[in-house]
Design a protein around this nucleic acid. Structure first.
Lengths: 218, 218
DNA sequence: GAACGACCATACAGTACTGTACGGACATGG
DNA sequence: CCATGTCCGTACAGTACTGTATGGTCGTTC
């Protein structure tokens, strides 16, 4: 209220929120104008058309949730700490709940496809490098990165669609990180199927949260 | 062509295909009629309205991809074999690629929510029972089930959106099962995921509102 | 062979959205 | 004071979809 002028960012984030709820089709200029308490006249001042809004919104998502995140992690030298920090941030309270599942679900949309492709490539490449830095052989690092990223995506899906059924996924920060660490440690181990020459990742525990969350009653 | 009469099933599967491509909004009677080379007159003979189609299609999905699957697995007595069979079927060639991500992405839709809730509950409960049969303690079985299901969902997401970037996810049958077995075997070892407290404080304390409901409902 | 019911095509109003045209408010600076 | 640029509201055509009404086309049945 009492907000005199809308910025393109306002429309952009509103578009992402709408997309998280109802997919690309829910990003309607009409609906967003109503939500922002403005009219379509304002929108068409800031954007050429609806496609331009979609493009801008998705590129903002790419910038905030991938590019900026990776840059932020560049300061940390220890790969182990970097991994933990990555998960802590990525599994932290989402800015917009359900956005990633919505974007993936519309992977074929012309406005989504190129951005999603860049994001997926970059994230998996980053994860692969990270596991390589942790001492895994290239093939293992790659496999590990894919599996970890799949688990992460599924985690977000459950958080979006089954928060009440699977309350575990609502956890943020260290607790959520600890939960997914299981996946990581499990996968980091060379399997019996394809034994690979590598000094197996230390079975030492991953960084644990301050309070152990679940080592209690069984 | 040369197909004289359309059945409700024809409309139903066409609806699921459309949903897999473009979400709920893509399920338009107009578009489906064009795809089936019919007119909307035919549709409104078989269905009361569009909502009835959505409901029928989603219930068919529930029946085919959850209820029937679990029944099919009932024959197998050995839990280990049952788990492998489950993954082999679930990761097999999808009938409709990208359907699950699309459904999850519209979890709030009134036609989707109840079905998705039932499916998620049932699948996780089945997985939990299965891991319990494999000898895991209740809390571990539950945690294992959630992690496995998350990895499965993410796997499907990657298969939908990143087949070219991550060709691993295109694998079906035994190969895909072997890939995900890493998750299973890694996690199934009870001795491995013992997390001892470490000094490394998490970068951001992060309010952790979610209690650990680990004791499970039994 | 006529009547009936299942199935489908066509035509119509109603709705929600997009994009554009245009005009108004409002501040700033010469 | 008014001139200009920024930002927004309103009005209008165009499009795509839904739901209904209505009539047509078959095969079946007695």
């Amino acid at each position: 209220m009492a907000r005199r002028h809308l910025t393109p960012q306002d429309w952009s984030t509103a578009a992402l929120r709408a997309m998280a709820r109802g997919g690309v089709a829910a990003v309607s200029v009409n609906a967003l104008a109503g939500e922002l308490e403005a009219t379509r006249g304002s929108f068409y001042w800031h954007f050429k058309d609806r496609d331009a809004l979609l493009k801008a919104a998705l590129e903002a998502w790419e910038r905030d949730d991938t590019t900026a995140l990776i840059e932020e992690l560049g300061d940390i030298t220890d790969p182990r700490q970097r991994l933990t920090a990555l998960f802590t941030i990525a599994l932290g309270q989402e800015d917009i709940n359900g956005l990633e599942p919505a974007i993936v679900a519309h992977a074929d949309h012309p406005a989504v496809a190129p951005v999603l492709r860049r994001v997926t490539e970059r994230r998996i490449a980053y994860l692969t490098d990270l596991y390589t830095d942790l001492g895994l052989a290239p093939a293992s690092a790659r496999r590990q990165a894919v599996a970890t990223y799949a688990a992460f995506l599924g985690w977000l899906e459950l958080r979006r669609s089954a928060r009440d059924i699977v309350p575990e996924v609502a956890a943020t920060g260290a607790i959520a990180t600890a939960a997914l660490e299981h996946l990581i440690t499990g996968l980091a181990r060379p399997s019996m199927h394809q034994a690979e020459p590598e000094q197996s990742a230390p079975p030492s525990p991953m960084a644990a949260p301050a309070r152990e969350p679940e080592t209690g009653q069984h």
